[in-house]
């Protein structure tokens, strides 16, 4: 007899099985996230998850918290309104590389610049999975996608460096091989005040690896293990994911800077004094 599978109360039992392919890393990242939330001690009703569109965007549908599956690229904008209006909650944006860095790129840089207090988890699988494996801003050079059948010829984003430049106050990169480090990093991000960005490198066996003859998901896990070099607290210089280079992972940036809300309140208090009435949203 099979034992009943014990799911964390943070997952919606009735929504299982999930839609992700065997060997996909999104579920691994979600497992790490759930453990990080449990360790953080944040009450279940004080975590809200906002997603955009795509394979990773489906995370919002599986977490047993108030969860919002919004439009393509705009999860950060919805999350900004939600986070400012529920200052006693932790708002987490959980989405993929295509959603956050291509169609949502403008919102990503501005939400980081404002240092809005939220956690952004970006699962980077180097492709658009949901629509069938098209090229994204993070697809490595020369790799094939359904819309780059002769190989990708564009330059790629280095997301941690982009986020540091925009003013993100917590920036990490891990792979789905680094589950312990990822859990620890997510827990730190959940407790961090300000804009946190965590890139999670993940295999897409169905649409990225197969097309590029990269073997099975285990091969990519081995790559993640063998090629990765952990570099904590040293900034994001030299962290680009170039072919053949070391795969640099770690908690790159961890600084405390006034959040959007703190800046707003400081400025208004300076100028308006007692006439200033802070926006409290709903408590």
């Amino acid at each position: 007899m099979n034992q009943p599978v014990l799911l964390s109360p943070l997952l919606r039992q009735e929504r299982m099985p999930h839609i992700w392919c065997p060997g996909c890393g999104v579920g691994v990242s979600l497992n790490c996230f759930v453990r990080a939330v449990e360790k953080s001690g944040i009450p279940q009703d004080r975590i809200h998850v906002v997603s955009g569109i795509g394979c990773t965007g489906r995370v919002a549908g599986y977490v047993n918290v108030d969860s919002f599956h919004t439009t393509h690229g705009r999860a950060l904008c919805f999350a900004t309104g939600l986070a400012l209006s529920r200052p006693d909650s932790r708002v987490v944006v959980y989405s993929g590389d295509g959603d956050l860095t291509a169609i949502g790129g403008n919102h990503l840089i501005h939400t980081a610049r404002r240092n809005v207090d939220m956690v952004v988890i970006c699962v980077n699988n180097f492709t658009y999975g949901m629509t069938g494996g098209q090229v994204t801003p993070t697809t490595p050079e020369n790799m094939k996608a359904s819309t780059t059948p002769y190989g990708n010829f564009e330059y790629t984003f280095n997301l941690p460096a982009l986020m540091e430049a925009c003013g993100a106050t917590f920036v990490s990169r891990w792979t789905v091989f680094h589950v312990r480090q990822l859990i620890r990093s997510l827990e730190k991000a959940l407790k961090h005040r300000g804009f946190s960005f965590i890139e999670v490198l993940s295999p897409c066996p169905t649409l990225y690896m197969r097309r590029n003859r990269l073997g099975n998901p285990l091969n990519m896990m081995e790559q993640f293990k063998e090629r990765s070099v952990i570099r904590n607290g040293e900034g994001t210089a030299g962290t680009s994911l170039e072919e053949g280079a070391d795969l640099i992972v770690g908690d790159f940036i961890e600084v405390r800077r006034a959040t959007f809300k703190e800046c707003y309140e400081r400025r208004m208090t300076e100028v308006l004094g007692e006439r200033f009435v802070p926006y409290e949203g709903v408590r």
Partner: peptide, 20 residues
């Protein structure tokens, strides 16, 4: 909140609405 464009402006406030 002055947003970066109308795409963001038209959904940012909906996040606040779902907060109540």
């Amino acid at each position: 909140l002055q947003m970066e464009d109308e795409l963001s402006a038209s959904i940012c406030f909906q996040g606040a609405v779902w907060a109540g």
